Amino acid sequence: MNIDVLIVGGGPAGVIAATVLAGRGRDVLVIDNGKSRFGHGELLSPLGAALLNNIDNRLFDPANHLCTSRLLSDWGESRTIVAMTNPHNNRSAWHLDRRSFDLGIERVALLKGAQFKRGERLKSSVRCHHRGIWEVELTDGSAYTSRLLLDATGQNCSVARHNGGQRIVLDRMVATTAVLGTSSGECEFRIQSRPDGWWFATMIPGQKVVACFLTDAHYLPVGASERRRFWLQQLEAAPKIREYATLTETFEIKSTPAGSGYLESAIGDGWLAIGDAALSVDPLASAGLANSIRTSRMAALAADAVLAGEHRLLGAYQRYTRRMAENSEITRRAYYAMEQRWSSSFWMERHGARRLNVEVGIG
């Protein structure tokens, strides 16, 4: 079967790119391994909401999500700063019901004409340079020829790395997250720094609170019971978070990569990387989803131009993602520089903002 674009990865980045491309009349297939994406506590910034509405005003329905009533920050000084937000203006952040959000954007993509295959992975991909196409096979045995591939596989950036892409790793931060009860009716976003990392807590639909401790991977104990004990000890030492969330009888702690990094080049021969595959930013900035929307839209426009025989937007997209990476690193350094109370390696490495290593592609 012949298609214009195969998108590998069915998260927000892949679905939004599919929406843009299908809306421009392109034959698009999105494949996804079907694994659950743990997206609790994700914030959609005012910029992110505006970007979605500019693409298609059906992509985001505020009625399905919670508006932040206030921000409480214990960062860089011992007192707490409170900033109020207003749900009736365009400067409000939204606490996403992630399942509702994902289903909503996929529904729009389907209405535009995009196709989806859930529970499938890319088994093989061969670039036929003389024909300018990819010959690909999925794990279900189906075969396609696609003119372009979009890598929306997150920080793994498997398509890019398989084809020689290099990912610059800035840190190995891990998010350890649990869904708890709430002791307050306020929809707040709380953040508190600690000697070995930092916390955030936020309400999500259903009167629940997501509490997340972010630290470097080497701080985390090995083993589920030891990691749970470590997490509870860190919670006990974070009063601004502890007073907002209430422990339930049973709760699960999930660990997910939350490090910063970017691809040295977000474009290659017949492929483009989008979302976290192109650039993953520190959760402190609450800009990850907005960045995914921006890269997905611009990459989709560049891909559409390539399919029409115009390649200039590829260079523009590469410059754009590099500029985003540079600006994100400047913001990252500035945020961490505000907190000078702690002297652990977690903070020292971020104050120095050193590059950890380059992950070289395997293809």
Rank of each mutant, 00 (worst) to 15 (best):
K123S: 08
H130L: 08
S158E: 11
L150V: 15
R167S: 10
W134I: 06
V159Y: 00
A152Q: 07
L149G: 03
N163P: 06
N163C: 02
G165K: 08
L138Q: 01
Q155T: 10
T139V: 10
V169A: 03
E135H: 15
L138K: 07
R127F: 08
T145A: 14
E137Q: 02
K123M: 06
R131G: 07
M173I: 02
Q155E: 05
C157M: 04
W134A: 03
L150I: 14
S124H: 09
A143M: 14
R172P: 08
E137S: 05
A143V: 14
G165R: 06
V126F: 14
S158K: 14
M173N: 12
V159W: 01
Q166E: 14
M173L: 03
S124C: 02
D151Y: 06
S158D: 00
R131K: 13
R172S: 06
N156S: 15
L149D: 05
A160W: 05
K123T: 09
L170K: 02
Q166P: 06
R131A: 05
R167T: 00
Y144T: 07
E137A: 02
G141S: 11
T153V: 00
G154W: 04
G141L: 13
S125C: 00
K123A: 10
G154I: 04
N163Y: 04
G164L: 06
Q155C: 11
R161W: 01
I168L: 05
L170R: 11
S125T: 07
R127M: 04
R172N: 04
C128V: 12
A143D: 13
E135Y: 12
H129Y: 05
V136K: 03
G132Y: 02
G165F: 00
R127G: 04
V159D: 06
S124D: 11
A160N: 09
D140K: 13
L148A: 03
Q166N: 13
H129W: 10
D151K: 08
